[in-house]
Structure formats: C-alpha cells, structure tokens
Amino acid sequence: MSQASTPVRPAVRAMSAFAFRRRLSGLGALPNLAVAAIPTLVAVVAVIFSTDDPFGLYGDYIVPLCIYFVIPFMSMFTMLPILGELYEQGAMAYVVTRPVPRWAPLLGLFQGSFLAMLPTLVLSALLPGLILAFSGEGIATGLWLKRVGGLVAVLTVGGFSYGAVCLFLGVWSRRSILWALGLLIGWGAVIGGLPGDLRTTSPHRYLMGLADSWCKVNSRWSGMFTPEPDPPGVLASLTVLGLGSLAFFALAWLACRRRDIL
C-alpha cells in the first residue's frame, strides 16, 4: 500500500494555518480576548480596592481563576465551534476526501487552534501580572517573572490537555458543548475544587500541582473552592496530563474514523 506516498506534513501545516487564521482574524479572536480580559479585570479591581500585597494577590486569585475557568472556557471557545461548523455543515467532506489520513487535518486543526489560543492564554496571565507588578513595590522582578512565567507554563500545559479533550468531544459528538461543560467545568473545575475523595480523580488536581511547584502558590481564595491539601508533584502531574492528552488524541483518532460526514 502506498500510503506513505503523500507527505503528511504540508497537510498538517496548511490545516493548522487555516485554524489559526480562523481564530485570530477578524472578530474570531474576540471571544478568547473577552475570556482573557477577565483576570485583567480582577487585577484592576484589586489594584483599586485591595490593600494586600499584589504579589500574593496574583498567586491567590489570578492563578486559580485562570486554572479553574480561563483554561476550560478558552479550550471550549477555541476547539468546539470550528469542529462543530466543519462537521455539522458537511464542510468536512472537502477535507477528508484528500489523500491524507484523516488524523492529519485534525492534528493540523488542533495545532493551529492551540497556537491561536496561546497568545490569549499568555495575555490572561501576563496582563494581570503587569498591572499588579507596577502597582506595588518591594518584590524583585525575578520573582514576578518566575510566578507569571510559571502560570503561563501551567496554562500552556492545561490548554494543551483540555484542548485534546475538546478535540475528541468535537469530533465525537453533536452535543459537544454539553459534554465539554460536564467534563471540563463539572468534573474538572467543580469536582477538582471541592473537598472529598472524588477530587483526586479530577485532572484539575494535577494542574494545581503544577501551579504549586512552578508558581509557589496554593489558593487562598475561599469564595468557591478549597485549596488542594496535598498537590501532586511536577513529574506525576506532567505524566498524568501527558498520558491523558494522548488518550484523548487516540479517542479522537478513533472517533474521526467512525463518524459519518453528512
């Protein structure tokens, strides 16, 4: 079988460029920017009203807010509509009748969407950091860089693995939003934030583990969720998140071969 005859790389690259363009051109970036603006809004309010030290505030509020809500919503906003449109309207027919394996365009879609999501993820960590850093004094720039950089790293890892989940859901189901809501917000954020044994099953725990190691924070925010008492280490977290992403890629691969394109 001459399956290796068609190079896969141009396909991935072109599809990636398409997804990137789709998400960042015109009004496409607006939803993600709106999500990214929320931590910034929180930072602004903190600067105006709060007397606490900004460095601590960043760790106590911005970090958990980003992990609990920015990552899942941004993954959903980035992955679900583009997949939904391609599949629901039959536009996928133009893509999958090309001489590349079906996973190649999907990988491209994921890559492009993820790349398009990155700037907004970085923004949602960086902007509040800048605002808070300039409002207070006394904390070394190096420490700030480390904390903001750490959050960016956590967001990147989180965006990657949650993106993989959304990729699978978008390929697999018509009602992907409901599933994503259940999985990412329900199982991830809510179960991962409430005390109890169940939280150890939630992927959020591992993101919080990374945050604990990389940003040296453990949420003080009492509004909704309790802090993780025993966050897992970096290696364990990365392993679990990486394997989880791989598992969802595999599921997406299975689903894309199964789903009829009508």
Binding site: T6, P10, A11, A14, M15, F18, Y94, V95, R98, V100
Partner: peptide, 9 residues
C-alpha cells in the same frame, strides 16, 4: 490552496 496542501503540496 488549503485543499491542495492536504494533497501534499
């Protein structure tokens, strides 16, 4: 061009 790239161009 996108579809052409999917064919390996």
């Amino acid at each position: 061009a996108l579809l052409a790239s999917l064919g390996g161009d």
